[in-house]
Nucleic acid binder design. Structure first.
Lengths: 322, 322
DNA sequence: TTGTAAGCGTTATCAC
DNA sequence: GTGATAACGCTTACAA
């Protein structure tokens, strides 16, 4: 690998000059500049980012911690994040905490080792202390670490409201809410919004916690069986909703005639399977973009308007509601 | 951020000594060692990996290029790769080429800038030339760049054979193969295997290229309609198979009574939707693990046994075949 | 066993 | 406009 010295030697100039033409910061005589450029192509020289980073104390690397990867919502998020990060000439170090506190702490240390410029955190297992005295800018997605650490999330309360209003409007009288783990802020907010509407209409509802991505079919059936007269279901993920659809069909209930079902996330699959899922659409696009843009502001020392940003969700009516 | 100098000062030793205790390479007096250790904790010092990398000319970063992220197979692969990479104290820089040659070339340059230690390539758009004179070890997944550049992939030929044998054994007489893009090696191999069996049994079959992750439902229906007597379908991805199931049901064909369908990948979802998909299971676990382990060997300058490794696939019989 | 100092590939501050 | 050179934080001969 050619270094700046090699280029300098070949172009018969000093390394300083080479550095100047690379960084386009200062004027360089057009002729010498061409000499340097020629040498660069001749040697197919690429500047060593590590050396540059060492000096500048920034790495142009963004670290992201996710609780797992095989979940559609996270992946959509990751895809837009990678895209926006790259477009700003940063790069992504992806870390999968596997919902494990120790792994997460280790990653945080790795981030310090690499002089990472900023962290995007999508995680529920955080040891708040680990983050409080971290000198690296952070933005959390779907999670509020502290009052001060910025976050973005969908307007989950609104999501709960929209789902409840739809179910109520469509005549549901006995409703089940299959939640994600109720320790999560997102889940709590959805529940609050959902309940607020149902209570207003004095409609019974029953909540049950499930895993977002691999809910137990047995649990679902048990709950459905012990609430046989249920005519509406709100699920905190489309995957859950998919499972509920299966269970309902297995039990001979017609959708949406007998039971109406609303999911959450609007994953790509929700409109290919049959019946097509009615769902609350989160915009991973907006969340991801906002996360990166905000983080970049933080990195540049700019102030941000809202510490805890909420992104609107929408109700998408398809075939599992009337 | 504390540096090695700060630690040295605090422990009243030289930076060399500190470096020695960090790297555990040379003997250090146990008492001074303790002094250093104390200073390290007191200052919560973490060594700067960038500086270390600059000197050692290795970054402990592995770069991975994927053609896109929102595809279950890639994500499962990414998940195991991240896990294995991390367990070896390397870290992952994730790059999404979006099936775009220019993006891919740019990432390659980024990899050089960061002194990346090795590259995992899951991509179809490669400009072979870009890789041939790259000094960085590479392993390709599902793709053979050149004779020399190592690769891993499923035994796709075997996958085609298994699918065809099953369909034939179950009495199918008129079979459609919905392929992925036939420019891909994986697709070509599956087709070869598939056809080899059908030809042996003198069974007609018809191939049609689709997109792996977002196949056009219109195209599928068109093909099905113009092959109305079709009683068996082999799809190159479970997502395709899912779409085919929808289309078939829409047209009133019963599964598996009228048509039998076999997918490819064995994604998690294939066993939650109804009917549960019969499919060819690729082991992302094995492929991912092999890829990382081989890459690490390459990095360490060790030789590898097989340049182009194939991993066995299995037929998983569920509800879309008899 | 420990310290000194050179060097990794950059950038930036001086001079000239 | 351009060239020396110190510095970034670390590792490793080479000395002591």
């Amino acid at each position: 690998m050619a270094t700046i010295k090699d280029v300098a030697k070949m172009a018969h100039v000093s390394v300083a000059t080479v550095s100047r033409v690379i960084n386009k910061k200062q004027y360089v005589n057009i002729a010498t500049k061409q000499l340097v450029l020629d040498a660069i192509t001749a040697l197919s020289y690429v500047p060593n980012e590590l050396a540059r980073s060492l000096f500048q104390k920034e790495s142009r690397i963004i670290g992201i911690i996710v609780p797992h990867l095989t979940s559609y919502y996270f992946i959509e998020l990751l895809e837009v994040i990678e895209d926006v990060v790259t477009s700003q000439n940063y790069h992504l170090m992806v870390c999968n905490s596997q919902d494990n506190k120790d792994r997460e702490s280790k990653y945080l240390q790795v981030f310090q080792q690499y002089n990472i410029d900023g962290i995007i955190l999508i995680s529920n297992t955080s040891r708040i202390r680990d983050y409080q005295d971290l000198a690296i800018p952070i933005i959390a997605i779907d999670h509020q670490l502290t009052e001060e650490i910025p976050s973005v999330t969908s307007n989950n309360f609104q999501g709960g409201v929209l789902a409840a209003e739809k179910l109520v409007a469509c005549g549901c009288k006995k409703i089940i809410h299959f939640r994600g783990p109720s320790v999560l802020l997102t889940v709590q907010e959805r529940t609050k919004g959902f309940k607020s509407v149902l209570e207003k209409h004095q409609i019974n509802n029953f909540s049950f916690d499930l895993d977002f991505k691999s809910p137990s079919p047995e649990d679902i059936e048990k709950v459905i069986n012990s609430n046989a007269d249920c005519d509406g279901v709100f699920c905190d993920s489309d995957i859950m909703a998919l499972h509920v659809v299966q269970s309902m069909q297995k039990l001979g209930r017609r959708i949406p005639e007998d039971v109406q079902i609303i999911g959450f996330d609007n994953i790509e699959l929700s409109r290919v399977i049959s019946p097509k899922l009615s769902t609350i659409g989160q915009s991973s696009e907006k969340i991801g973009r906002y996360a990166v843009e905000t983080l970049l502001k933080l990195i540049e020392g700019k102030s941000i308007e809202e510490t805890h940003k909420q992104i609107d969700v929408i109700l998408i009516e398809r075939e599992t509601t009337k």
